[in-house]
């Protein structure tokens, strides 16, 4: 029984480690699909300060002008 628990904990630890290292590997599309000439500064010339494509993170927070209508 103890071995089972240890193995589950170890699995979660290894998974967390994998998550960490894969997270380092993860690249944004604006990094992967830009040439060297492109200066992408996510703070000013991307849609939001931290554009993740995640709706929970508001883009252009505060500065957005709602479209007319």
């Amino acid at each position: 029984m103890r071995v089972m628990l240890i193995s589950a904990v170890a699995a979660i630890l290894v998974a967390t480690g994998a998550a960490f290292f894969l997270g380092q590997e993860q690249r944004f599309a604006y990094q992967a699909f830009a040439t060297t000439g492109a200066r992408v500064t996510p703070s000013s010339n991307l849609v939001g300060p931290r554009w993740t494509g995640d709706p929970d993170v508001p883009s252009k927070s505060g500065q957005i002008t709602p479209p007319p209508g």
């Binding site: 894969l22 993860q26 944004f28 599309a29 993740t52 494509g53 995640d54």
Partner: peptide, 16 residues
């Protein structure tokens, strides 16, 4: 379809 991040693990972001 496009994704904000490249790797298909963790948070890849929402398809656009």
């Amino acid at each position: 379809p496009q994704y904000p991040r490249v790797g298909n693990f963790g948070s890849r972001g929402k398809m656009d």
